[in-house]
Amino acid sequence: MISFLAIVRQTVRLELRAGGGAAVALIFFLAVVTAVPFGVGPDLKLLARIGPAILWVAALLAALLGLDRLFGADREDGSLDLIIVSGEPLALYALGRAVGHWLATGLPIVVAAPILGLLLNLDPPAMGAVALTLLAGSPALTLIGTVGAALTAGLPRGGLLIAILVLPLTVPVLIFGVSATSGALSDPEPFLAPFLFLCACSLAALALAPFVAAAALRLALE
C-alpha cells in the first residue's frame, strides 16, 4: 500500500511539474471545446443541444493525450526495470500510474467541464449532468488508455498509435456517457440505465485494465 501511494504521488507530481502533461491536457480540452462552435456556427440553441456531447468528445480526446509518456518514460529511463526487479506487483504499479494520471488530468477536466459549459450555453442542470457523467466515466477512459499506453510503451511514436488502438475500445463509454447526460436532461430518455452501464464500464476497466497493462509491459520486455 505504501508503494502504491508512492507511485500515485510520484505520477501526480510528475504530471504537475514542468514537462508534465496535466496543464497541456486541460488546455487541449479548452481548445477542442472552443474549436467546435467555429465549425458548427454560433447558434446558441444548437450549442446548448449538442454541448454535452461536445464536452464528452473533448474529454475523450484530452484523455488520450500524454498517455504515451505514462509507461514510455519509465521504460526509457530504466525505472520500469527497477520496478520489476524490486518485486513490486506490476499490476499495482500500472494501477498507481493510472490513478495518478487520472487525478492529474481526468479530475481537472471533470471540474472544468461545467465551467466550459457556460461557453456552450448549457443551463445549470446540464452542467451538473455533464460533470456527474464525466466523473463516473472518465476513469474508464483513463484505464482503457492505460492498456493502450502499456501496449505501445517503448515505441518511438506510440502516441499516435495509442489513439488508434484506444478509440474503438472507448466507444461504449462515450455512448453511455452521452446517453446518461441527455437522459438526465430530457424526460422520455432514461437516465439510470445508461448511467449504471457507465459505472459498470469504469468498474470493469478498474478490475481488468491494470492486469492487462501489466501483462503487456512484461511481454514487451522479454
Binding site: A6, Q10, R13, R17, G20, G78, D81, L82
Partner: peptide, 20 residues
C-alpha cells in the same frame, strides 16, 4: 540507465524508491 526523473528532487526520488 540511472532511472531518475529530472523533475523530482533527490529526497523525493529516494523516498519513492524507499517505498518501492
Amino acid at each position: 540507465l540511472d532511472a531518475l526523473k529530472p523533475a523530482m528532487t533527490l529526497a523525493e526520488t529516494l523516498r519513492f524508491w524507499g517505498a518501492i
